[in-house]
Design a protein around this nucleic acid. Structure first.
Lengths: 217, 217
DNA sequence: TTTTTCTAAATTGGCGCCAATTTTGTGGAA
DNA sequence: TTCCACAAAATTGGCGCCAATTTAGAAAAA
């Protein structure tokens, strides 16, 4: 058995392949602009062609990869305008969901959130770019879990993956990383105070901070 | 040539098939709970199996059809809770987009909107259920067109199709139809007055009105 | 040396066939 | 008559092959 087929032994579904592709894009193993050749993916994930094709179609319909007929699929180049637009919609949705967070988060939940924020801090200082993304996903995923509107939650989850397309570009500078870390703790603070307007302001600030490129200078 | 292959002659893409399926669901030609047998669709749209399968996978990833492994795909039963949740998110997004509508809609645009609202009124009184849906799509589509945030606009369009799954259930009573008709003119009125809070309130009312079942009694 | 054209390789996308699973229909037993 | 088991039909889902298109490379002309 080669190293390529180490995970998910016998029959990976096309959804699992999709998820692995997204993961590899986040890891940086698949770079923006790179063509996703079906033969390569086939070998990389040790699965059959049809699974690869289904996975790519799924990813395309979720707008996570580009598709050019008779050319193939490729990882989209991060587009600052688009990233900002995704951020704007995410902020809008998460601010709406914030009502549920304040209404439903227990003290125990807040402790869990604090743990996740600590995890992100650790990743920010000592972890890989991928570890940072995973920790950030875990924190925001916990926030989403309070949302009682399933459609709203699904939309937020779908949108999140369409944000900064690659680790390159999300937290480019140490300053941005520190701001993101502090942002998480600020959110927890607002939740503890059960201060909805404050929480919403900080959500907006946190998301727009992570979807706005740092000024060159 | 049979009547089944009348439209889109030579090589319909799988996206076109997807759209035709959605249209047929809205028309009521495909009923909620009905199994979407690949052979039937193949004959109905006069296309090959692979196109049907691709279309169904696409529709599934957009959550427009249910998929049960080894059983097939089927038109989902309208779920009142889910419809309300979709309405809540749509209202949230359209209220946000309302800023652009007020900022960018010219007097000429408003006249176009009035025409579309008239079209809906005609459909409400004299048209089929499908014609009503189409006219409603056209009106709201024009509203979306002002939105400068592409992601926001795409999200609204995606979400709209996930609303009331079938004509059955959207405007069940004459009362609802009249309210929807009046709602459109009220929206135009608020746009003319450039009154953002009023427009937002009426958007919320209009959408929640069309996604809430009438009281039995 | 540079550009153009033609050929060969590589890649995607489409289609038919076959296995796996489910459903339907029939026959027999309680 | 009703219920259950079994077999036959139908449907989905997977896989390999082949054609169409594109890309890369080499050879020839300017």
């Amino acid at each position: 058995m080669t190293a390529a087929q180490q995970e998910a032994a016998p029959k990976p579904s096309s959804d699992e392949i999709s998820q692995q592709i997204v993961t590899d894009i986040n890891k940086g193993a698949l770079s923006p602009g790179e063509w996703l050749k079906q033969i390569d993916l086939e070998k990389r994930y040790g699965c059959t062609r049809i699974k690869v094709r289904d996975a790519l179609t799924n990813l395309h319909s979720k707008r996570l990869v580009e598709h050019i007929p008779n050319r193939g699929y490729r990882v989209p180049q991060p587009d600052p305008l688009r990233i900002r637009q995704v951020g704007e919609v995410r902020a809008l949705l998460e601010c709406h969901a914030a009502v549920d967070v304040i209404a439903l988060a227990t003290d125990a939940d807040i402790e869990i959130l604090r743990g996740l924020a600590e995890d992100f801090k650790q990743a920010a200082y000592h972890g890989s770019s991928f570890a940072q993304i995973e920790a950030n996903y875990a924190f925001h995923g916990k926030l989403y879990s309070f949302c009682r509107n399933d459609v709203l939650r699904e939309t937020m989850l779908d949108l999140r993956q369409r944000g900064p397309a690659a680790p390159v570009g999300q937290w480019q500078t140490m300053d941005q990383l520190q701001k993101a870390t502090q942002g998480h703790f600020d959110l927890i603070d607002a939740i503890e105070k059960r201060d909805l307007p404050l929480l919403q302001a900080r959500i907006t600030s946190h998301i727009s901070g992570s979807s706005t490129a740092p000024d060159a200078g």
